[in-house]
Design a protein around this nucleic acid. Structure first.
Lengths: 156, 156
DNA sequence: GGGACTAAGGTCAGTTAAGGTCAAAAGGTA
DNA sequence: TACCTTTTGACCTTAACTGACCTTAGTCCC
């Protein structure tokens, strides 16, 4: 069974699509009610699925008339790449984090499906094995090296 | 008598057939319950019967709503690729060896130039660093994982 | 303007629900 | 017996989820 988090994610994405534009405003408590879950669950979904890595910006306001605003952020290829490289600079990459990042690049049309599969294969379990000392760090380095490929002249 | 492992294998294969498509999602604990065995038994079956050599890809997710996803990846009859995989099976890959291999694949029209650059980046110094215990082995594994990507259905 | 009250959203630590790993015991078979 | 395959269980990691408590913003009343 799909988890509630997955369902909420799907719901919000649907809202974004329906809204035509790239921004929606929702009430945390309302969403929580729809899915019969704790309000903090919504925060969980937002942080795990709608972070900057996935290409979203979250703003919010508390108090009466408060809201959550979810914005899909469009970026140029270079901005996107450089942002991702910065991100990788400071971060370790667990497999699923890396995967989401790649999906983002696919959605942006930056990578082909074939390339994503290729890169997924690289950062996956099988390739890295368990023997390595710091798999998350190695993953970050590998992704960085691959992405930097695209910053080269010939691809601009 | 057929071992439980064999029965589980048969069951999963049946599920795959029934599903029509080439992918199923199951819960480890559920399967374990059906066959009244330890959950880790399922992992055993997966690693011994549903590895890449047998033409399957395993993905999984932990935590609430976790699952095991088994994907059938059709083997291509392409001798070159399979030959290369065999070759990698027994060999370590120093950087320049790996590079030659990629160039050959480019010449054969298997990879685009872009893909070759991508893969070269992966097996290069920067990505793997110097800290790793067996860089040549890691390189072999990574290349293997990447090439196996191309054995999948969608690329035939 | 300043409390007091109300209506939001935020945080975080802790619990629950998965799957992963590994070594060791058990079972088969040449 | 020696070796290989199965099977299990103890322990680990990761993801999902919740609830108690906190912060911020607006409203009403004096």
């Amino acid at each position: 069974m799909r988890s509630i988090a997955d369902q909420i994610e799907a719901y919000l994405i649907k809202l974004l699509k329906l809204s035509g534009g790239s921004v929606i405003e929702v009430q945390r408590s309302e969403i929580a009610q729809i899915f019969a879950c704790a309000p903090s669950q919504i925060n969980y979904v937002l942080t795990t699925r709608f972070g900057p890595e996935q290409g979203y910006l979250i703003e919010s306001r508390r108090g009466g008339g408060g809201y959550l605003r979810i914005t899909r952020v469009e970026m140029s290829d270079n901005e996107l790449l450089e942002g991702l490289l910065d991100f990788l600079e400071e971060t370790l990459v667990p497999f699923h984090g890396g995967e989401r990042l790649l999906i983002r690049l696919l959605e942006e049309g930056f990578l082909t499906k074939r390339e994503v599969l290729l890169m997924k294969a690289v950062i996956g379990q099988q390739a890295l094995g368990n023997a390595l000392p710091h798999p998350d760090l190695v993953r970050a380095n590998i992704l960085k090296a691959m992405l930097q490929t695209f910053l080269r002249d010939e691809f601009k």
